[in-house]
């Protein structure tokens, strides 16, 4: 080791300074930017994750732990006593006790009963699995078809892409709810029809996303390098494009899931989704809307609406963290 001290000499133009150096140290090329940071949830992201986790547990265990059956009438003999508090019923008519606006109802029906005297809490627990399950399967179908078509259009070249994209544009120009209503009306409001219908309608959106991502990757040099090597289309799609498209597509799944949940709930709300007496959060709002409109009670409407909102907002809080991590690229594609 030889340490050379600094030498200083003065001249008109300024001093000459040499930093101390170790003659044996080589000056390696400086590293490129550090690898992208690991994904971490923010506080709001954690709130979202906890809420979504809660609903997932409810969705799976709901039917087993619900206090009453889906269509069971908890108080068949004398339900007039156990009605949910009415607007203006500030005091209990029997005891004279202050009950307040959101006073809870007794004897196990924690949220009271609905327009047909069924236990709201139990119905929400039954509905959780149905709403989440239908939406999840539908989104999966939409992804399966949309990704195949979208990546396919990106790979197949401008002519195929032009045709498929124009047809896709045509479908996108029609409101999704309208498409849904017509399809369900034609083929019947069964759960399989609902799933296929939502899946097909959201295929158009996933197609556009997958095509965009596929197009971005297609112009990368490494894809061209594979073509120059003589690779077939299968290799290019599965080994070059898919591994790079998978992450952005998967992180967009949550966002699509939100829209599908809202879509299914809206259809149910309009009476063409999940059919009564099966419980679904959307049709629960619809069935009990009268209670709100005539000022009788708010819980039967608020409870299922809040259930959907907490679920979708929870998912969105997670999605927001993911898209912030991905540099906001996802939000641009919305």
């Amino acid at each position: 080791m030889t340490d050379t001290t600094q030498t200083t000499q003065s001249s008109d133009a300024g001093e000459h300074y040499v930093a101390p150096f170790d003659a044996n140290v080589s000056f390696d090329e400086l590293q490129d930017a550090p690898p992208p940071a690991k994904f971490k949830l923010s506080i709001t992201g954690w709130v979202g994750a906890i809420v979504v986790g809660f609903w997932l547990i409810v969705a799976i265990t709901g039917p087993f732990i619900a206090p009453f059956g889906e269509n069971e009438l908890p108080f068949p003999d004398d339900y007039s006593e156990y009605q949910t508090p009415r607007l203006g019923d500030a005091t209990d008519p029997e005891t004279g006790e202050e009950r307040g606006f959101f006073a809870q109802v007794y004897n196990g029906a924690l949220m009271g009963t609905d327009a047909e005297d069924r236990d709201i809490l139990s119905r929400i627990m039954y509905g959780a699995g149905r709403t989440i399950g239908i939406s999840f399967v539908a989104t999966t179908i939409a992804y399966f078809l949309g990704v195949i078509l979208g990546i396919g259009a990106a790979v197949a070249g401008p002519r195929v892409d032009m045709i498929v994209s124009r047809i896709n544009d045509a479908f996108l120009s029609l409101p999704s709810i309208m498409l849904g209503l017509v399809m369900v009306a034609a083929f019947g409001s069964t759960i399989p029809v609902l799933i296929v219908c939502a899946g097909l309608i959201y295929t158009t959106v996933v197609y556009r996303l997958a095509r965009g991502i596929g197009m971005d990757i297609m112009v990368m040099d490494y894809v061209e390098a594979a073509k120059v090597r003589g690779e077939g289309i299968w290799w290019i799609v599965t080994k070059e494009i898919w591994p790079n498209a998978a992450m952005p597509l998967i992180s967009d799944f949550g966002l699509r899931l939100i829209y599908v949940i809202l879509f299914i709930s809206s259809l149910s709300f309009l009476g063409l989704g999940v059919q009564p007496p099966q419980a679904d959060w959307g049709n629960m709002v619809k069935e009990n809307l009268g209670a709100l409109q005539y000022g009788e009670s708010i819980i039967p409407v608020v409870a299922p609406a809040v259930a959907i909102a907490t679920l979708t907002v929870g998912i969105n809080l997670i999605v927001d963290d993911i898209s912030a991590h991905a540099g906001g690229k996802l939000s641009k594609r919305m």
Partner: peptide, 8 residues
């Protein structure tokens, strides 16, 4: 870090 500085 500055390794060396001086007139051109």
């Amino acid at each position: 870090e500055i390794k060396e500085k001086g007139p051109v």
